[in-house]
Computed example of a mutant assay.
Amino acid sequence: MTLAPDQARTSTMARVNPVAKLAATMVLTVPLVLTLDVVSAGAALFVELLLMPWAGLRWGEFWRRTWLVWALAPLTGVTIALYGRTSGQVYVEWLAVRVSDGSLELALATTLRVLAIALPSVVLFASVDPTDLADGLSQIWRLPARFVLGALAGLRMVGLFLDDWRALELARRARGVADRGRLRRFLGMAFALLVLSIRRGAKLATAMEARGFGAPGPRTWARISRFGGREWALIAVGAGIAAVAVAAALAAGTWNFILGPG
């Protein structure tokens, strides 16, 4: 991939409606949640990695955004390996820890499933603008506009909260009240930020009501959220990956319906 730093935001994938990305993720995730086996998760992950070059991210940006997923997925597998269902030969047994063939297989399946579910979610939403997502949820999925716009306004405040936290920390250091007692300082700053966020939320709600965000009846939109061929194609890709995973598991005889009896 040779995309320029800003091309991830202007690539074809970035222009796909965010609700289509959400729908594709859901279509892909459902079959992987219903089963826990190595073949289905491995097949889905393999196809996803083959398609990653068309996601609109440079490989460097891909690793920066997904390194936490790669780091935490094996930790999930380790937990399953130590405390998962015991079957087959037991290799290690100490107190509640039992490492066996069954637990190791479940650990590998869990690790692959976490990667197969989390990686496309992170990559697809890397270039999503919150305003575009809110427009799509209200105009296409017909969710209540008041709820969607309120959530969007709250999301926009996250950056301000971070700035407020840094400002509180610098102010306390300047007054000499942040030199010791880390726990006490943290609790004090958290309470101050809570009070500040409540006040800001009340002012924001009043301002939005004054501008007609809570008015009854149909509302107009500054930007029209469109859903066309690119969006359906992305959902079809997600459904195709899910179908490949299910077919591979059924063909190998490893399908393990976790909601079934036993």
Rank of each mutant, 00 (worst) to 15 (best):
P130Q: 07
G214D: 14
A116M: 07
T76G: 15
V69P: 09
R146T: 12
R199M: 10
G84D: 11
W94V: 15
A71D: 15
A242D: 07
V177E: 13
D164Q: 14
L82H: 12
I117L: 14
R98I: 04
G88H: 06
R9M: 13
L259G: 13
A243R: 06
T220P: 04
L194V: 14
V122S: 06
V237A: 12
L133Y: 00
A44D: 01
L32M: 02
D129L: 06
G217S: 07
T25Q: 03
L45A: 07
V122F: 05
T131M: 09
A202I: 08
L32A: 06
A215Q: 11
E48H: 11
L119I: 14
E61K: 10
G228I: 04
V148W: 03
A81C: 02
V237L: 08
A96W: 11
F161R: 10
T86V: 15
S197H: 09
D37Q: 05
G42M: 04
L51Q: 09
F125R: 05
L259V: 05
L194I: 13
D37L: 11
V92C: 03
R166E: 12
G228Y: 05
S100K: 04
A8E: 13
R180K: 11
G176F: 01
L187Y: 10
A239I: 08
A23M: 13
A222R: 12
A109E: 05
A73L: 05
A236G: 15
T254W: 03
Q7P: 08
K21T: 00
P144G: 09
R199D: 14
R223S: 11
R182E: 11
P18S: 02
F213G: 10
G201D: 11
L155Q: 12
N256L: 11
M13P: 02
A96L: 13
P5S: 07
V47A: 13
L57G: 02
P120T: 00
R64T: 09
A107M: 09
P31L: 01
G150C: 06
E61M: 14
T12A: 15
S11P: 08
Q7K: 12
L108M: 12
S121I: 00
R223V: 10
T35C: 06
S138Y: 01
G238H: 00
W221H: 14
E61G: 12
V123L: 01
F227L: 12
E169R: 15
